[in-house]
Nucleic acid binder design. Structure first.
Lengths: 149, 149
DNA sequence: ATATTTAGTAAGGTTGCTTGACTATATGGT
DNA sequence: ACCATATAGTCAAGCAACCTTACTAAATAT
């Protein structure tokens, strides 16, 4: 009946904290006027250069996904008006994924929402704690990073 | 060409660190003789009481999933020999999901693997850092926890 | 007793990926 | 210059891990 605390292991804590942040962010973005927001779309948008755009194959490499998967998400985001495809001047095979004005507005909202959630967290645990946690997470993440062959 | 560092924000760091740990764990379990290991199966197994078993509806509540989804995963895990269903003596509607011997062996391997990954991490960043990180993660997680209505 | 709630099952749909097969362009060796 | 191979992207189909809707059976409340 009572929901037990999950095992208190560093791995579970990392997964849990990541999940919590992710869920809060998705909910906040949906509340902020982007009801069709999903995390995979956000990840993709976060992998597109704001100014020059990014080739699809590079997006796929950053996200560790196939280019077909990237193509599908870009299709969706282009249909929703956030992104557009344009030919790459330097490579006839390639296409650059670039932001539309609406896509840039999305990014600004996302930045604001992230700041708000961080501020709320800092209000509860203190700014120093958030800073220290960020630092330790960076260390842990780089220690666990797979060898960049 | 060069894969840029993702944005250095506390939220991304949390998500990233959780992903890294998760991926390492899945890979290690598959290497340790459980090639059919997936994270959703592991989550479910982690939600079953080792001794008394757990009712399906309680598993669903812990995982925040529908009971149908739980039923499907339990079907798979039962077919693979990790779990079994038995009638609940106290409620004629309910079934308890319990471990088989093979399921318990899986749990022991999972505990060992988690320990190994943690030890490797501690070897790189130091035990004190891991301990401090765990502490801060606990604080942050409880601060972000949704109101338990 | 009857109405409502609760535990679980059945069937089918959706999302977010995957693999396999293909076209078009680029590039490196001869 | 020509050909082999590699690379960028697309198309089609499939799969895992969920979901929704609709149901049965048992428990509980009125």
């Amino acid at each position: 009946m009572t929901i037990p605390t999950p095992p208190d292991h560093i791995g579970w804590l990392l997964v849990r904290a990541g999940q919590l942040w992710r869920d809060r962010f998705v909910a906040a973005m949906q509340a902020a006027g982007y009801p069709d927001f999903t995390l995979s779309r956000a990840n993709l948008l976060g992998s597109v250069d704001r100014y020059r755009g990014t080739r699809m194959v590079d997006i796929a490499a950053r996200l560790g996904m196939t280019k077909q998967a990237v193509g599908q998400i870009v299709d969706d985001l282009a249909a929703a008006g956030y992104l557009a495809r344009e030919a790459d001047a330097e490579d006839g095979r390639a296409k650059r994924v670039v932001y539309t004005e609406r896509g840039l507005a999305f990014l600004r909202t996302a930045d604001r929402v992230k700041g708000e959630i961080e501020a709320e967290l800092a209000g509860k645990v203190g700014e120093r704690t958030v800073a220290r946690l960020s630092e330790l997470l960076r260390d842990a993440a780089s220690a666990m990073e797979p060898p960049t062959s």
